[in-house]
Design a binder for these strands. Structure first.
Length: 176
DNA sequence: AGAGTGATCATG
DNA sequence: ATGATCACTCTC
């Protein structure tokens, strides 16, 4: 994931995600067909960034993954910083080590200076923020941990579904 | 384990 | 208009 802010480039490898599956997923903002000012980006075409504000102080970002009217999104829960760590430290303030920079969904947004201003950004254009392929080979399934999502204990029969994905042993994965 | 913090959303 | 909630983080 690449972010240009004030002319400087920051980047990180996506190491942890969660899937939010449209109108039937009780943990998704679009559950039951809810369509609000906040979540309207989720209802649009995939390839755009959905950013929401929560707990009075935190932003979290998602990659919209469905076609229009199919509100599926992938929450970016953690990044392994690869470029611009100095700027990330400045943005985060309290972080002591590199593993504190982006090891959580709101931390990653704070490090990359992502707010509601970035909601709806087209990630297929290399402007402001986008996603690039790495030169690394795809990881084998054996290197991916799969488990229940974090912080959605209210979601009844959806709370234990295996929709959280992370790279096994990567120190930048959130504690959750 | 508890506080911090305010937008958001369903209710009426 | 009101009140409960919240896809979290930090500090104790």
């Amino acid at each position: 994931m690449v972010r240009i802010h004030n002319g400087a480039r920051m980047a990180g490898l996506i190491v942890e995600t969660e899937a939010y599956l449209g109108v039937e997923d009780k943990a998704a903002h679009t559950f039951g067909g809810r369509r609000t000012a906040r979540n309207q980006t989720m209802w649009g075409d995939g390839g755009h960034l959905y950013v929401y504000f929560t707990y009075g102080m935190h932003y979290c970002m998602n990659v919209v993954a469905g076609k229009a009217e199919n509100p599926i999104a992938v929450l970016i829960r953690a990044l392994e910083p690869t470029e611009g760590m100095e700027l990330m430290h400045a943005n985060r303030g309290k972080a002591k080590r590199d593993t504190d920079l982006c090891s959580g969904p709101a931390k990653a947004c704070q490090a990359l200076n992502v707010t509601r201003e970035q909601d709806g950004v087209d990630l297929t254009r290399k402007q402001g923020m986008w996603i690039e392929m790495t030169r690394q080979r795809a990881l084998p399934a054996s290197r991916i941990d799969i488990g229940p999502r974090v912080g959605i204990g209210y979601a009844e029969d959806w709370k234990d579904k295996p929709l959280r994905f992370s790279i096994r042993g990567n120190p930048h994965v959130s504690r959750g």
